[in-house]
């Protein structure tokens, strides 16, 4: 279970999150939406302690992680897998080495055969069988995200975090990534937190949709309820209509 209490974060003079409260139960799938620069990725990075809050607390399975040092966090992070916006693949390694990385670094030692088998299974799961020997530079954006997902699921974590998984991808590839997220969620029964501003993606992958607005969680509802909302701010975001004063020309 993930619990965020009164979380605040500022970068210099710019406040990004203010008293954010959030609770995500085990096995739940949550989509966090909001405007670009609205603090979605910042919130996600607090959940896995890549960022430290100015105030507030983050609890993972009831354990506060904000005052833990980097070594103590290693144990907590074993519960997590994260897919980055740019995939963040290790470019000095092949696809197989990228996916095998968490297994090689685990305290529990796997044999070379076990690692090879798990890597092949993870790549098959993301529809990229036989790409073990390729380098990240040879892959398209969608393929890189799939490899990033394979690397995140190869050690079967309890919680999967996705940072804008469909950003920069064409609608067909975005659709396949959405289906993949749903397939992984259902197969591994993981808790999924998906940060996105792709409305179609949010509607499909989340059992619940949270909207960040003005540094706080503005809306929190099931997808059907959320997308039927008549709240002007929610409606404006869903319909993608800019304020007249935001017009550039």
């Amino acid at each position: 279970m993930i619990e965020v209490r009164q979380l605040s974060k500022a970068f210099g003079a710019q406040k990004v999150l203010a008293d954010v409260n959030l609770r995500i139960e085990s096995g739940e799938s949550v989509a966090i939406i909001g405007r670009s620069g609205g603090g979605k990725s910042v919130l996600l990075k607090h959940i896995i302690a890549l960022l430290q809050p100015d105030a507030g607390d983050v609890l993972i399975d009831g354990e506060s992680i904000v005052r833990m040092n980097e070594r103590q966090l290693l144990r907590i992070r074993e519960k997590f897998g994260m897919v980055f916006q740019g995939a963040a693949l290790f470019d000095s390694m092949s696809v197989a080495e990228n996916v095998a990385f968490p297994l090689v670094r685990k305290k529990k030692k796997y044999t070379a055969g076990e690692i090879e088998k798990r890597v092949a299974q993870a790549l098959e799961m993301v529809d990229l069988p036989g790409t073990q020997k390729k380098n990240p530079a040879e892959l398209s954006g969608g393929m890189r995200k799939r490899v990033g997902l394979a690397r995140a699921i190869v050690y079967e974590p309890q919680i999967l975090l996705y940072d804008e998984p469909t950003t920069g991808l064409d609608p067909i590839v975005s659709d396949s990534i959405d289906k993949l997220i749903i397939r992984v969620r259902d197969h591994f029964k993981v808790t999924s937190v998906v940060v996105t501003h792709d409305m179609r993606s949010a509607r499909r992958v989340g059992n619940r949709v949270l909207m960040l607005h003005e540094k706080k969680i503005y809306a929190n509802a099931a997808p059907e309820e959320f997308f039927a909302s008549q709240d002007p701010i929610v409606r404006q975001f869903i319909d993608g209509v800019a304020d007249p004063q935001e017009a550039i020309f």
């Binding site: 990075k45 896995i48 890549l50 980097e70 070594r71 966090l73 290693l74 144990r75 992070r77 074993e78 997590f80 897998g81 994260m82 980055f84 916006q85 740019g86 963040a88 693949l89 290790f90 470019d91 990385f101 968490p102 670094r105 685990k106 690397r151 995140a152 975090l161």
Partner: peptide
């Protein structure tokens, strides 16, 4: 380069201390 392309963050999420 690893830092600006989030590879160091990826290391941390994979329960590996960058040091």
């Amino acid at each position: 380069t690893m830092r600006v392309t989030e590879q160091i963050d990826a290391l941390r999420t994979l329960a590996t201390h960058p040091v």
